[in-house]
Design a protein around this nucleic acid. Structure first.
Lengths: 193, 193
DNA sequence: TTGAAAAGAGGACATTTGTCCTCAAACACA
DNA sequence: TGTGTTTGAGGACAAATGTCCTCTTTTCAA
């Protein structure tokens, strides 16, 4: 009989944790099912949760005068939270919602701090996570500044084609800094080479 | 006779370092004058330097088909480097250039790593620095996605009015995701209320 | 002090992108 | 298996923004 291993455990194993340290880490996470349409985080509150996306898909969105504007989507086994609120303990201004039925593993900020201070190697893991965030955010910001909407579309088409399976084009359009109407134009142009 | 204190020392004092730790930190930095127009970092190389902006102003820019596109400006006492190249040791694709005659304090990556591993509290300082970067980059990216050029202009007008003393509007326009021509329109509209 | 260079405003026009629609196909679920 | 909902395409038009200029004013180095 084989033991079922979660993506979360897999993730920390690959990050070099094992034995007691790994046990301690995993003990701080709580698994939770989230229905399509449910919110993991919502605007207005101070965020204390960080979640590992075990399976499914989520999008970050802002409420701009009633209209929703997606700013980010996640489908991989990655960590997600509202960074600004989580890091600085200020009220959150974005929402994180399940696009499909999903499973997440949640850890609270105080437990994360405890891991950072007690588990050997975890502080360096946290640093690596932050450095990765910096790289991704920097790249995303630069793309918005110096690339065209078409170039941004071509990039995710090449680098994250898996997004197109789970995420409606409408939401992807906004993460690329354009309206769904315009994404339709961009796609038409590319198909016609 | 009073001892002159550098902004760098001031910065680390305020971050809670003193005595031997502070001495070790400061010993790793080298002060350097940079003439207006000179490059601190240029595209193509792997970045190993991090600089503290002691005085002056710099801008980050990309070379897009011969035209320069500024993506960031610095005038405060902050750290600057090409994050993606510095963190991931990949060739740099942006340039960092002095807008005015400036003084910087440079530290190399290997020395930074040494401080992180040897000076008590420095690893936590590095974490705080990364967290600050994440917050700033996240906010910048969101502004580009959900705010109008006018809103972005009004934000720096309110939050960083000191930029307008040292940085030409042409460069600021690009950091706000618009052309200088359009910034001129935005300014005209605002003056006329 | 002066003259070249840089900076900022803004006119005229082109292009890009958004808004508001409608329609057809795909999907979801009772 | 039918039916309401969601999704994606795209037409018509409007608004926002870029490109290419010219003209002043300011800056700054010789």
């Amino acid at each position: 009989m084989t033991k079922t291993i979660t993506a979360l455990e897999q993730f920390f194993l690959q990050s070099g944790f094992l034995g007691e340290g790994l046990e301690t880490i995993l003990s701080k996470f709580t698994f939770k099912g989230v229905q399509k349409g449910d919110l993991f985080l919502e605007e207005g509150k101070i965020v204390t949760q960080l979640a590992f996306l075990e399976s499914g898909a989520f999008h970050y969105f802002y409420n701009i005068e009633g209209a929703i504007r997606t700013t980010f989507v996640h489908v991989n086994n990655v960590f997600m939270t509202s960074m600004n609120s989580f890091l600085n303990s200020v009220p959150n201004s974005e929402n994180i919602q399940a696009i499909t039925n999903s499973t997440i593993a949640v850890i609270y900020k105080n437990d994360l701090m405890e891991l950072i201070n007690k588990v050997v190697g975890f502080k360096d893991f946290y640093i690596a996570m932050l450095e990765y965030q910096v790289s991704c955010l920097d790249k995303g910001r630069l793309d918005l500044l110096v690339k065209t909407p078409e170039e941004r579309y071509l990039r995710i088409l090449k680098e994250q084609p898996e997004l197109f399976q789970k995420v409606p084009l409408k939401l992807l359009a906004y993460t690329l800094g354009m309206t769904p109407r315009h994404l339709s134009r961009v796609r038409k142009k590319i198909i016609g080479n």
